[in-house]
Amino acid sequence: MKPPKFDYFAPDSIESALALLTEHGEDARYLGGGQSLVPMMNLRVAAPSALIDLNGIAALRGIRIDEEDRLHIGAMTRTRQIELDATIARANPLLHEAAPHIAHIQIRNRGTIGGSLAHADPAAELPGVVLVCDAEIKLFGPDGARSVATGDFFKNIFSTALQDGDMITEIVFPAWPSTRRWAFQEISRREGDFAMIGIAAWFDLDDAGRISAAGLAAIGAGDTPLRLSSGETVLIGQAPGEKIFAEAARASLSDLQPGSDIHASAEYRREVGGVLVERTLKAAWERSS
């Protein structure tokens, strides 16, 4: 379990990183926290000719709130920091709640949000949360900077809208209304394992106490993190309660597209996905009522 030879570069700016990647061709790869890529290299599943290490680029780090109350997280921000950061706990408590489910502390200490999104494991937590929050993913590539909505970002298993030479620079989360209710739950074989199935949920209430906006997303339920729009539709305009949550869960089943692997069958993922939709909505509601 030793990787083949590769070149290694540690640029200190986004521009020089791109220049290095361009110079070293299509087999060069950006290195984030290395928690997925490096094991794949050790198993010789991945064999990049060069690693362009993004860890030294200050512009890719950091957490801030802008004037429109949007939360900006630099792509190279560590998962552990997302878990512990007080600003995030306030500005996107769903992200804060999901973070401890990601692997183990040692991995969270090193893994980055940008790395997780770029890797695009359909069972990973951060892609699901980013999706359910309608975050924007900021990219920088050969044609300069651009932005992709998360709904358009995840294409397939380990496949995203990233083009050759693109790196993720920042993730921008819309402002989080102070009255929003949220929950994240997942089922994994052991604590820290990839979710067999997981659900991220939030909803907002109008003045009449009815659900005015809602987000439901599933991880481990398909080739990408999935938005459960059928379930969301059921919720809109309804007063929260167990009955409507159960109905939303039933409706969500049609949006789940799970597969089978050695840890869980498609049937399990679909069935328990429904259970978790109901549970997360209930937990979200009970959180503040």
Binding site: I187, H263, S265, Y268
Partner: peptide
């Protein structure tokens, strides 16, 4: 496993 137990319960 959770999967096997749920299959039996289902």
């Amino acid at each position: 496993t959770p999967d096997r137990l749920r299959a039996a319960l289902r």
